[in-house]
Structure formats: C-alpha cells, structure tokens
Design a protein around this nucleic acid. Structure first.
Lengths: 177, 177
DNA sequence: TAAAACTTTCAGGAATTTTTGAAAAGATGC
DNA sequence: GCATCTTTTCAAAAATTCCTGAAAGTTTTA
C-alpha cells in the first residue's frame, strides 16, 4: 500500500472507531493525523488535510487539548500556533482512561449509590430486584474503577508484566470456561 | 428516595451512560428496565413505561437480543411475547465485552495490521513516525484484546481474586507513579 | 494607534441518527 | 378460508449532533 493511502485509511479507521466510543469522528481524525505526523501542524494544514472548516478544526483541537491529548506550540518568529499530540501510546491510553473515568464512571457510581438507598418495602420483589441489580452493578463498576486506577498509576512495563503473570497463572490452574 | 423515582433515575442514568459509549439511549433504557424488573415484560408494557412507540420498542428489543443481553419468552396460553434480561451482572459485562471485541477491536486490529505494511522510504521521517505510531497502537490494542479474552473466559471469583493479588503486589513493591 | 495575522465564537444550516405510526406480514384459532 | 391478535418493516418526520463561514476578538508588529 502507498503511504498516502495508508495514512488516509488509518485516519478514517481511527475516526470510525472514535464514533463507536462516544467521541466525535472529526476529533478522532484530527488526533490520528497529529499522532502520525512527526512535526507539529498549524490549524491551516489540518483544515486542508482533513477538508474541514476553520471553526471545526479549532473546536476539535480545543477538545483534544481539553482531553490532554494534544498541545499548542509557538514556533520562534512565527505568529501562528502549531499543534502536536502525545506520541507515547501508553500515555495516550492512560490519559483517555483518566478522562473517561472522571467524566463517566464517577457520575455513574454516584447515581448507583444514590438510588440504592431507595426506601420501599424490602419484601416487594420489585424493590428486591432493583436493589440487587444496582448493588451488582456497583460492585463491578467499582472493581473496574479500582483496576483502572492502578493502571493509570503504573509504569507500562510493570503493568504488562503483571498481566502476563495473570495469564500464566490462568493457564497453570487450567481454569474452566 | 421513593422507589418510582429511583427507578426513573436509574433508567435515565443508564441511558445517558449508553449514549457515551456508542449505544443508543433507548436501547440502554430498555435494558435498564428489563434488568431491574423481576418478571418478563411484554412490548406493550415497555412502550408504556418508557413512553416510546411500538416500532422503537421492537427495534431496540431486537438489538438487545442481538447483543445477547435479552431473550424472548412465550407464556403458556398467551399469544404475545415477553422479554427478560440476563440478570447476572458478570455475565452481562462479559457479553458486552464479547460483542464489542468482535464488532470494534477486531476490525481495528485488522486495519492496523494492513496499514503497517506500508511501502515507502524507511528513512522518510513521515513514514517512520507513521509506522512507529501504528506499531505502538497495535501492541496496546493487542494486549487489551488478550486481557479481555482472559476475562471473558474466567469465572468471576478467579478473575477478581487475581486482580486483587495484582494490586497487592503493586503495594508491596511500592511502584512509583 | 492602527493594520495585519491569527484565533475564537456562534447562529444558521447540513448531515446524521432516532423515532414514529401506519401498513404489511406473520401467527393462531375457529 | 377468514377473523383476530401480534410482530415487523419502513418511509417520513423529529430530534440531535455536527459543521460552516463570517464576524468578533485577540495578539503582535510597526
């Protein structure tokens, strides 16, 4: 495959993935472009490459900065701003997790905690089922939250080495399906 | 909080969460309703509770069945169909992971593999940066995929016990930030 | 101070996604 | 076969999300 095609394909694929994960397609495409570009880019260059308007470029660049995935840079002697993305994928992954945890997991945990304290007849099967479901969700979401907390505080090597051990121990024990 | 309010709040919250994760709001709400309801429900009841049309209810129920999160049931002597959701949250989590892995992770891994084999001057910094980024993504997405594979094949208890050990070993070693 | 270079905002419009509701299709029982 | 009850389909409408481009705002230079 030619480089230009590969680049195009990667940007499209990353955009499509983003849209399956609640992230605006264009924001993901801008991110993809910055990820694979060695030097920083001006808004102008991004607009041209992705065929988007000035306003759109500006909005999504700000969003990326807000997510901690991109930064501005000023080049000496130049007036315009240049943008670049964090290239270390482990850092990127951690940053995404930090933000989504803050924006989505925390609020959900708060709601689960709130609604679990429903006052109603504990013998009513409807209430029972409700409390059971909410408690179950709280446990799993809470566990996931803890796990992600460990992850974002970890070094990449330690984290994957430890996961690897987990896989091994599974093989040894011969866990059933 | 009154039961009716808690129920309402839970359904709303679950719907909002879904929409942040690429899942249609109504589908998540129908799922929430089925999750907390002990007995199975007819389309009619779901339409009435959530204030949605027949077509909408039907569409989202089918989607839930397609995701393996809900099932149909026929009651003896009754003509209409009833619907219920898997209540075991561990099973639900695993099922969601199975589907998203199939629908999203796998296709992305395929694209990454494809575009990594770009033919271009290996000394061109643009090409270098591209290959580095794609390789890095491939590694991390691949690791995540493996981890999720272990998870969906695990018993809940084994999985969380092992994670717990992982956290502990971190504490002992005293990993730095 | 003013012009030039650039960034940000935002109202309106375009595009996309979701929902509706009526009609078609599919069961069931007589 | 036919009447009845139920589910499914799908074109059109509604709702939502996203994008544009011109105008306003900001910073720099002279």
């Amino acid at each position: 495959m030619q480089f230009a095609d590969a680049k195009e394909k990667f940007i499209q694929a990353w955009g499509a993935l983003g849209s399956h994960w609640g992230i605006n397609r264009t924001m993901a495409q801008v991110h993809a472009l910055l990820l694979i570009t060695p030097e920083s880019l001006s808004a102008e260059e991004i607009m041209k490459t992705l065929n988007i308007s000035r306003g759109n470029a500006n909005m999504n660049l700000r969003a990326l900065i807000d997510w901690g995935l991109a930064s501005k840079e000023h080049k000496a002697g130049e007036r315009r701003e240049y943008f670049y993305a964090e290239k270390d994928i482990w850092q990127v992954a951690k940053q995404v997790i930090i933000e989504r945890r803050k924006r989505e997991l925390k609020p959900v945990l708060r709601v689960l905690d709130e609604v679990r304290q429903v006052d109603g007849d504990p013998n009513d099967p409807e209430v029972q089922s409700f409390v059971e479901t909410v408690t179950g969700l709280q446990k799993i979401v809470g566990q996931a939250d803890q796990f992600l907390d460990v992850m974002v505080k970890s070094e990449r090597k330690w984290f994957f080495d430890t996961l690897l051990q987990m896989f091994k121990s599974k093989a040894e024990v011969g866990m059933k399906e």
